[in-house]
Design a protein around this nucleic acid. Structure first.
Lengths: 200, 200
DNA sequence: AATTGCGGTTGACATTCGTCACCTGCGCGG
DNA sequence: CCGCGCAGGTGACGAATGTCAACCGCAATT
């Protein structure tokens, strides 16, 4: 019997996935969570064999959850199930010790199979994605990422500077750096590109 | 027995929802489609009682599908199930004759209940959303919408002007108008807000 | 014929952005 | 101790952006 914990922020999808897994005779969904924090509490409480988690969730993301599972040495495998075919996400996921990465575009039958394979000690990564992942490294450093994130929300250089306790000029320098590294023409394109690649 | 057709582009979610509905003794998922076109073919073929559809799908969107169902006089109810709590979407959905609008954030149990109510001739609209929908009309005119869309992609005023065969100054004026109407500080915020409201 | 309104244009202005060269302080290995 | 790299800051310059007021056909009124 494979004991599964589900983390997914959209209640309807969570319920549906739960129904899907309950159809499998060898699976047991022991609990499900609407965000990373709750998932972590439930992991400590139930010690499931496998955690199936989305990435983009309020509070603690799926990637951060995976990292925490590894750091705190919880004895469970983590499988990511997400909409986003972003190379950067896959890379960070693997670095966080994730053993499975599926897309919501994949057929539903594949989920149970993947969980079984993972439970036996295997790895499951969407093959299409695996190639892209190592093709292109994230050229941004931490500061550039932060600055770009905020600028992408529409904050001006001054506002970003205030939030990060930097000077206005420095923020513009980072932005300029990021724009250059990404080979685009302005902050908006830089934000869109970085986001699409999963570099956030 | 309620005969249901499912339209949803993400295969895993589609399969999971199907599993969820099959658990109900009075429901029968007669077919499922990955996009609007396919859904329409299957509707003609199976004549289901209820169509459950996402909005954002490749090719034909859920809203366009609903419209077609109404125009061609197919005898089935349409229920939208989507991620997007955008007032503009709800409004367009209702105008297209949709009888149900649920969010994927809503609990999974609610889906089957909603389908039963709709099948009995009722309407189901997420209450939270219903208020917003008529509260706030889209303040943008066509030009402002076009300009904002392009500017949001990262195009400069000049580039937008070239695409729309306008002058640079005019584009800046429209942008300025839009920014003013939306009560924000720059084009980036304006784009985000308009998009979030479903005004695109 | 004069009036109003509307879509588009122009030009001027203050701000903000994007770029670049150069400065500062600080830790770290030699 | 020196030199080096590195995170951050400064200042300046041109380009793009955001704001306004005024202007131009042109069509529909009156």
């Amino acid at each position: 019997m494979i004991r599964v914990l589900l983390a997914e922020d959209q209640a309807m999808v969570r319920g549906a996935l739960s129904a899907l897994l309950r159809l499998e005779p060898d699976m047991d969904v022991v609990a499900s969570a609407a965000d990373g924090q709750e998932a972590w509490r439930l992991i400590e409480q139930h010690a499931p064999d496998v955690v199936v988690t989305d990435i983009e969730m309020p509070g603690l993301t799926g990637l951060e959850l995976a990292q925490r599972v590894r750091e705190r040495g919880a004895a469970c495998k983590v499988v990511i199930v997400t909409t986003f075919a972003r190379p950067g996400y896959l890379r960070r996921a693997l670095e966080a010790g994730v053993v499975g990465y599926l897309l919501k575009d994949a057929p539903a039958e594949q989920l149970a199979d993947a969980l079984r394979k993972v439970h036996r000690g295997g790895r499951v990564v969407d093959p299409q994605l695996a190639v892209d992942a190592w093709s292109e490294a994230d050229p941004l450093n931490d500061r550039e990422r932060q600055v770009l994130r905020l600028a992408g929300e529409g904050l001006s250089a001054g506002e970003v500077a205030a939030q990060l306790h930097l000077s206005q000029g420095t923020v513009r320098n980072y932005l300029s750096e990021a724009i250059g590294k990404l080979g685009v023409g302005n902050r908006i394109e830089a934000y869109r590109l970085a986001r699409q690649k999963g570099w956030l």
